[in-house]
């Protein structure tokens, strides 16, 4: 009862209430309130996340498992960044309350937290993101070898769009006069036609399908039909 029935009641009641609330001016703000609550819960849940991260890495370090040194790096960097941020180490004071240390900004140089963000976190994430350039190329090459109609359509379109958005478009088809009957064959026009008509249609249908899928998924949860999130233990 406490473990299985009450959660379903909580879920159904919250969800149904929010659906109804959306239609009445008296309850319009409920959606925002519960989103605020969600953010608070997500922040509270950090305790669980941090606990898990510490437990896993401490265990690796203490048992000297293969690669324990890397776990130690994670632990140390986590602890350093956390202390820097929570205690606002090296933060510039808040001009309207310079005597309250914690009123200063936790981000930005020259605080220790800001330094770590600027010179450690930010270059690392930016480089991970930049690696995508190589992966896009390898994915295209992989799809190219698939040699079926779908792959050809996907890559062919990608290729045309890529050309159409660059100077290559003018280079290849720029000689076709703009006002001639063949103007539609100009790469920039082909690109526009494909994005405006074909891929817009595809996107719309995908979105409509998703909307129905979301609605059905939500209903399955609200009606208590899908209970896979409930453990029996």
């Amino acid at each position: 009862m406490l473990r299985r029935t009450i959660p379903i009641i909580i879920l159904s009641a919250t969800g149904t209430m929010l659906v109804v609330a959306y239609f009445s001016p008296f309850t319009l703000s409920w959606g925002e309130t519960v989103l605020d609550w969600f953010n608070i819960l997500a922040a509270v849940a950090f305790v669980l996340g941090a606990g898990n991260l510490l437990a896993v890495n401490l265990e690796k370090v203490s048992s000297r498992k293969a690669g324990w040194a890397y776990a130690a790096i994670t632990l140390l960097s986590f602890a350093a960044m956390f202390i820097f941020g929570i205690f606002k180490v090296g933060a510039v004071p808040n001009p309207s309350a310079p005597d309250v240390h914690l009123a200063g900004a936790y981000e930005g140089l020259p605080s220790a937290f800001g330094w770590m963000y600027e010179y450690v976190l930010s270059p690392l994430t930016a480089t991970m993101f930049a690696m995508l350039a190589f992966y896009v190329a390898s994915a295209a090459f992989r799809a190219f070898r698939a040699k079926n109609v779908e792959a050809i359509l996907l890559l062919g379109t990608a290729f045309i769009i890529l050309l159409g958005r660059t100077a290559a478009a003018t280079l290849l088809t720029g000689w076709i006069p703009v006002d001639s009957a063949f103007a539609v064959l100009r790469l920039d026009n082909v690109t526009t036609a494909v994005t405006e008509h074909v891929s817009t249609a595809g996107m719309r249908a995908i979105t409509i399908g998703i909307a129905l899928g979301v609605a059905a998924t939500s209903l399955r949860l609200l009606l208590g039909i899908d209970r896979s999130y409930l453990s029996k233990g």
Binding site: L41, A42, A45, F46, V47, L48, G49, A50, N52, S228, Y229, L230, S231, K232, G233
Partner: peptide
């Protein structure tokens, strides 16, 4: 995400049951 970890643990435990 921490909450996803919590939800995933519940779900996987339920699956094992």
């Amino acid at each position: 995400r921490s909450l996803v970890m919590t939800a995933a643990r519940e779900t996987v435990q339920a699956a094992h049951f």
